[in-house]
Structure formats: structure tokens, C-alpha cells
């Protein structure tokens, strides 16, 4: 099972209709990402990297090709089945954190478990706390997002992504709104989580951030232009 790649895409295609034109945002991309890899996805805007991430995240469906995630064919599942896949197998981290301002840090972390039938109500509190400990924010559990710094907010968001114990963490420009010192902290956190076995796929346009990954996928004009492995830089703040 472990030899089976976590992600396997084959000739993945996504076409958008822009008025009379049809834009092939993603044009026959094939790739595999193994379990425990740390991958940076790069490319200029319009290169198809966001489309690729949306497809990997099961937020969108491909117009052609196949997508196997964690041993399951997910390319043509319906909306409810995709929601279940997102709930159990994928954790999302966004550039703008996307925390709900009304809720405390812990309540934000608990949110994904509300939609996961596999987690009992009684387990929620302890799992949320464990996730906050994993990101080093246990003392801030009862703070609201507005009472937290940007770095802390992103840690809460990462705890939220971890709480359903998914094998895959997808991060979309997670350091885009952070200063360089905080960026280093967050990247160190990603590396630490990656060493515990979680596969991390991260979109960035900053080469300094991509340097912390063990593999870089470079997109251009809807194609996978370059697939480079590298020795990751250590992000110790």
C-alpha cells in the first residue's frame, strides 16, 4: 500500500469557456506524488498551478484524465462524495487564513470535525487541543482570530487542516501574507509535520519558500514544465 503513490494524475485536463474562447487551463498533466513527500508547486500566474491545486483538492472536477488519491479514483465523483474526500483526506491552508472571526481558535479548529461523521462529538475537544499543541498554540485556544498575530492565525489554520488527520496537506501561498521571520516559522512547522509522515503540497511563487521542499513542480501554459528534486533547505527559525 505504501508503495502506491498518494497522488497519481494522468493526462489531467481542465478547460474553461471564456466567452467564445475555450482556455485549456490544464492540458494533459501527468504526475505522481509519493507518501511523505514535500512538494512545492510553482509557475507564473495563468500557468495552471491554481487549477492543478483545485483539482488535487477535489474542489473542482477535471474535464479529462484521471486522478487517484490515496488509492481511490476521485476524478468523477459527485459533489457529496468529493465533500467526503475533502473531509477525510485533505487539509487546506490558505493565504488569507480564512478563520471565522466569531469563533475562538479552538472552535475554528473544531469546524472540520463538525462535517466528519467519523469523529464523535466527545472527541472533538481533545482532538482540537492536540492539533493546537502540534502547532504550539495551546495557550491561545480561547482567543479569537482578531486577538492573534498573522503567524498565530496561520498556525490555527494549520491546526484546523490537521484535525481530521488527513494524509495530504494542501497549502495555497500559505506565507503570502506573512513577514520573512514568520514565514520561516511556518515553513519549519510544515517541515516538522512532513517528517511525521504527512504529504505536503504547497503553491508558492517565492523561490525562497520553494527551497524548503524536496521537490518542485514548475507549471507553464497548462503543462508540467519541470519536475525537479532537490535537497531541502532546513527552516530552523
Amino acid at each position: 500500500m505504501d508503495s502506491d503513490p498518494l497522488i497519481a494524475v494522468e493526462r489531467l485536463t481542465r478547460v474553461y469557456a471564456m466567452g467564445p474562447h475555450r482556455v485549456r487551463a490544464l492540458d494533459g498533466v501527468s504526475a505522481e506524488i509519493g507518501r511523505g513527500e514535500f512538494v512545492a508547486v510553482m509557475g507564473p500566474s495563468g500557468s495552471g498551478k491554481s487549477t492543478f491545486m483545485n483539482l488535487l483538492g477535489c474542489l473542482d472536477r477535471p474535464d479529462g484524465g484521471r486522478y487517484r488519491l490515496d488509492g481511490e479514483e476521485v476524478g468523477d465523483l459527485d459533489a457529496d462524495a468529493l465533500a467526503a474526500v475533502r473531509s477525510r483526506r485533505i487539509g487546506f491552508v490558505f493565504q488569507s487564513f480564512n478563520l471565522l472571526p466569531r469563533l475562538t481558535a479552538r472552535a475554528n479548529v473544531e469546524l472540520p470535525m463538525v462535517y466528519n461523521r467519523a469523529v464523535l462529538r466527545a472527541e472533538r475537544a481533545s482532538r482540537a487541543e492536540a492539533a493546537l499543541i502540534a502547532v504550539g498554540l495551546e495557550e491561545r485556544a480561547h482567543h479569537r482570530p482578531s486577538q492573534l498575530s498573522g503567524g498565530q492565525q496561520q498556525r490555527v489554520a494549520i491546526a484546523r487542516a490537521l484535525v481530521n488527520r488527513p494524509p495530504l496537506l494542501l497549502a495555497d501561498e500559505p506565507t503570502g501574507a506573512l513577514d520573512s521571520r514568520t514565514t520561516l516559522e511556518i515553513m519549519a512547522l510544515f517541515q516538522r509535520l512532513n517528517r511525521t509522515g504527512i504529504t505536503v503540497v504547497l503553491v508558492t511563487h517565492e523561490p525562497e519558500v520553494a527551497a524548503f521542499a524536496g521537490r518542485v513542480l514548475l507549471f507553464r501554459d497548462g503543462h508540467l514544465n519541470e519536475d525537479r528534486r532537490q535537497v531541502p533547505q532546513e527552516a530552523s527559525p
Partner: peptide
């Protein structure tokens, strides 16, 4: 955005 987030973390349409 809240709705988008809820959908992303596994909420179904219903």
C-alpha cells in the same frame, strides 16, 4: 468566504 471554507473542509451542499 465562510461558505467556501465550510465547503472546503468537507461540508456538503445540503
Amino acid at each position: 468566504r465562510e461558505i467556501g471554507l465550510r465547503l472546503a473542509v468537507g461540508a456538503r451542499r445540503r
